[in-house]
Design a protein around this nucleic acid. Structure first.
Length: 295
DNA sequence: GATGAGCGA
């Protein structure tokens, strides 16, 4: 706690900084301007700071007010007990090797965050999803209601018909890194114009988007095989956009089969070749190309 | 033995 003594006059903390309001409009003969200025001494090596100032009391008389404050004490009591406790811990990581770093270990994040202003014209927004999609031409009025939630194309197609729907965000990044073009066939007219709104990263629901082209069906799964298990098993062949185990709606139990969608068809082929007939959980897996789901 | 769920007109 700050050790503060104020002589001649009781005062509040808030008074300390109000050096321009002496007298408070009281009707004395003296004015604040005639009072000696406030003098601050210290803080010294012990953190003691003295302030000497002159004020007018209620009767308009000048009084000297001396305030003594232990500055360090104040700073120390600003932290909680637990925080103070943590200061006693042994340093680790970078802080253990660099005394100086201990005080400021905050680092700049390498993550690139694009802030876009939708209304600003001509702003080139660079993001992984945008790079993959060519710009779309100006669109017809009235078509704007149809907005693809994957590539943000307006008036082109619905999300379910998006030519890029099979590329989950993680795979998108992989494609950028590997310089592999996206679904190159046909109408891939999705995309966004620079300066337009760029949708946020797709969520979990979009991560699981199915991809009939590269999907395999796996049957003869044991009851307790979960999607994570399939991911682990099939993921070794290449990136997946979806792992799904069919569940009974009523019991929630596995129906013994599931589906996996690969980013690359070749990976799906290899998975079929390797895992069809593969013993898993004491059962023999059956892995084939999945038929497109009927409407 | 067996072919999936879900965000909009």
């Amino acid at each position: 706690m700050a050790a503060t003594t104020a002589k001649h006059q009781t005062m509040r903390w808030s008074d300390l900084d109000e050096d321009d309001d002496y007298g408070g409009g009281g009707g004395g003969g003296l004015s604040a301007l005639q009072l000696p200025p406030r003098v601050v001494i210290g803080p010294d090596e012990n953190g003691i700071k003295k302030t000497v100032e002159y004020r007018l009391n209620e009767e308009g008389k000048a009084v000297r007010v001396t305030t003594t404050t232990r500055v360090r004490e104040v700073a120390r009591t600003r932290v909680t007990k637990r925080a103070a406790e943590r200061r006693g811990w042994a340093k680790f990581g970078d802080a253990a090797h660099n005394d100086d770093a201990g005080a400021r270990l905050t680092v700049v994040s390498p993550e690139e965050i694009v802030l876009e202003r939708p209304s600003a014209p001509g702003i080139a927004v660079v993001s992984s999803s945008l790079v993959l999609h060519p710009l779309i031409p100006a669109l017809d009025k009235g078509a704007a209601l149809m907005v693809c939630r994957i590539c943000n194309a307006k008036g082109k197609h619905w999300t379910s018909k998006c030519p890029n729907k099979d590329f989950a965000p993680l795979q998108l990044d992989a494609l950028v890194d590997n310089n592999i073009p996206p679904n190159s066939g046909g109408d891939n007219g999705g995309g966004s114009r620079p300066g337009k709104y760029v949708p946020p990263k797709p969520r979990e629901s979009e991560m699981r988007r199915r991809n009939d082209e590269n999907s395999v069906r796996v049957t003869n799964l044991s009851e307790d095989t979960r999607e994570e298990d399939l991911r682990e098993l099939f993921g070794s062949f290449g990136p997946l956009t979806r792992a799904y185990v069919a569940l009974d709606h009523r019991t929630g139990e596995s129906r013994g089969f599931g589906f996996l969608s690969f980013v690359y068809r070749e990976d799906a082929e290899r998975a079929i070749a390797k895992l069809n007939g593969y013993g898993y959980d004491s059962l023999i897996l059956n892995v084939e190309w999945a038929a497109p789901r009927p409407n």
